[in-house]
Structure formats: structure tokens, C-alpha cells
Design a protein around this nucleic acid. Structure first.
Lengths: 185, 185
DNA sequence: AACACAGGTGCAACTCGTTGCATAGGGTGC
DNA sequence: GCACCCTATGCAACGAGTTGCACCTGTGTT
């Protein structure tokens, strides 16, 4: 039940509409928590009913009106309660990883192609995140700015993990293949 | 919908009961795919109804009888179809990561304690996986054995990612704290 | 005028996954 | 004899998350 809290964090940084939040969850926060707009709208409604957030309709020129949410006192209390509460260890899940193990029960060449594609995608993300990190103020960061930067560092490390692992996979299979087929002179 | 396929992989390696599968999902396969026994029993029943697996009741001395499943031809076909199909990019999710970003809206010391605890847990898992890897046959692996080993390598890399990142987090905040409070001479 | 497109919000139906509970035989400890 | 744990399977209810669709406003295009 962390979507509520991810939204509270995002709204604490700056008030936003459901639509804004959806875009934020496609970026920064979204490194480690994703959500569709449906889920966000539904959860926002529940949070408003619970008094965690307040809603202000905002008319826009040349655009449909939007509903801007900000964190209510009860929401701040809940956020700080959650922050202090134990975080359970969570299970990482990856369909690709299962497929790596499954390769010998199907078309191994197809698995290689998928691994290549995933590696390329992770490499792209890695480059993107590194660009973001390079744009940072070089001054020593503190407080919330430092937190945001360190989460970005996590995103970079995670993409690096993927690139390295998938590369190891492809390399290991390439050399085992040439070994078992007899390496050409 | 990858649990079916994870089960097919596991049953392809060796037939098993729901209970056996549950234990396997707490280990090896479980590095990258977890499941409770409830989910496994439910999915096994559906897979049997779909003709993907076959069930053989096996009486045991001094223990309740179990139902051993193995992969049926339709299951093998489905598995190889899935292996060749595109694997969508998936979103990584982590509540701790959200909490790192949230720290400035609550008790930062409590977050540090949780980060320490998570880092210790990941370090323990890392040591465990490295032990498993060290027990491997040193001969050059090929085929499915190589796949299994490479997935274990992924588990090791992932735990290493966590340990490194959480260490970076703690280190960065420790030095920013002493910097902003004036480092002792 | 008709249409596509972007911002903006939302319902309904579904699948996936978790939690709590139920059952039942056998072994172990007090 | 009784409580308790381990193997082994399963139901019921709920919450989390996805997918498909609907609707409305305004702008730009043809």
C-alpha cells in the first residue's frame, strides 16, 4: 500500500493534479514506483475522502479545468507515520530472468534477441539518467535535494546492473557455444 | 501472467507437488519470481484444467499423500511459445526507494535505521548466494546448467547493487551531515 | 464543417496477489 | 493425554494493478 505514500511525497514536493502526477510517475518517482492514471485518480479520490489531501479546482485558459491536490495535515501525519514504520523486505520480480532460466526449453536464439533488446533499452535509460545526473548542481547537496539525487543514483546503479548482467549472459553463452562446437582457429 | 510459465520451467526441470514448488519458489526460481502456496495451488489447478500439466496422486508413508504434477505436451508447447514471445519491459518497484526520497518529510534517523537493516539483509543474501555459486561444479558449464548459474549470478549482482546503493546513501548523508554541521577538526 | 489531437477526468470489469482461515494425519516434547 | 509443529491441500474475501472504454474542452488542420 505504498502508492498513497508515493503520492504524498510527490504532492509534498509540489501540489499537482492527477494528470501531473501521472507524468511525474513516468519520470523521477517512477524509477522505483510506477502507476497508471487510473490508479492515481482512484487513489486520489480515496485519499481526499480520508482527508489526507485537499482538492482545489483550477480553471485554465484554453484548457479544461484541473483539480489540484495538496497535502492536508492528516496526510502529513500519515506520511511521517509511514516513514518511521518498518519497511518489509520485498521480492524483486523479473519475467526476463525467468526466461533466461527457461531458454533450454524453447528457442534459444529468440531469447538472445530479447536479451539484446532489453540490454539496449536499459543502456538507453542508463544514458538518460546519467545525463540527468550531469545536469545537477555540482554544489554539495543536502537534505531533500540530496535524497532526490541519491534516488537517481539508485536508478543509474540499477540500469547498470541490468546492462552488466545481460552482457555477462550473452558473453557466457557465446563462449560456451564456441567451446562446445569447437572454437575456430 | 508469468507464474504459469515459471511453474512450467520448474516442473520441466523436475516434477513436483504444489508444496515442493512452494519451497522451490522460496529459493532458486524465487530469486526473480516469488509466489505463495495459495497462488501456486490455484494456478496449478487452472493449468491442469487447461491440460498444461498432469497430476499423479502419490501416497507417502507417515505423511499425507501429495499430488505430483508434470508437464503435458500442451504445456511444453505453451512454454516454448512463451519463450519465443516478446518480453515486455517491466517496472522495478521498491518501497524503500520511495522512502529514501521521502526522508525529509519524517524522521530521518528512522529511515537510516531501516536502510541499515535492509543493507544487512541484502548482505546476508549476497553471502548466501555467493556460497551457492562457490559450490558449483568448476567445469565449464553449458546449456541449462549454465542458465541456472547465470541466473544465480544475476541474484548476486542484484544483491550487490542493493548493498552498494544503500551504502552510498548512508555515506553521502553522513558526510553531508558533518559538512553542514561543521566537520570536527 | 469535420476531424484529429492534446490535456484532463473518470467508470467498469478484470486479473493478479495477499491474508486469514480450515482441514487432516503424523511426529515430538512435556 | 495434550499441545504443538510439520507436511500437505484448499476456500473465501479482499486489495492492488491493468485494460478498455467514455466523456468533455479547446486548438489546429484540412
Amino acid at each position: 500500500m505504498a502508492l498513497e505514500h508515493a503520492i504524498l511525497v510527490s504532492l509534498s514536493e509540489r501540489p499537482a493534479s492527477g494528470f501531473d502526477l501521472t507524468r511525474r510517475f513516468d519520470r523521477s518517482i517512477g524509477f522505483f514506483w510506477s502507476a497508471t492514471h487510473q490508479q492515481i485518480y482512484r487513489v486520489l479520490a480515496r485519499m481526499e475522502a480520508d482527508g489526507w489531501v485537499r482538492c482545489t479546482p483550477v480553471a485554465q485558459s484554453g484548457r479544461p479545468a484541473k483539480k489540484v491536490y495538496d497535502v492536508a495535515p492528516a496526510g502529513r501525519r500519515e506520511l511521517s507515520r509511514w516513514i518511521a514504520a518498518d519497511t518489509p523486505m520485498e521480492q524483486f520480480r523479473s519475467e526476463v530472468a525467468v526466461k533466461l532460466r527457461a531458454a533450454s526449453y524453447g528457442d534459444r536464439a529468440a531469447v538472445f534477441a530479447q536479451v539484446e533488446a532489453h540490454r539496449a533499452e536499459h543502456a538507453t535509460r542508463l544514458a538518460h539518467y546519467e545525463q540527468l545526473a550531469a545536469d545537477y548542481d555540482p554544489a554539495p547537496l543536502t537534505g531533500h535535494d540530496l535524497d532526490v539525487h541519491l534516488v537517481l543514483r539508485g536508478g543509474i546503479r540499477l540500469e547498470q546492473f541490468w546492462v552488466d548482467w545481460l552482457t555477462e549472459y550473452l558473453t557466457a553463452h557465446t563462449s560456451s557455444q564456441s567451446a562446445s562446437q569447437g572454437a575456430p582457429a
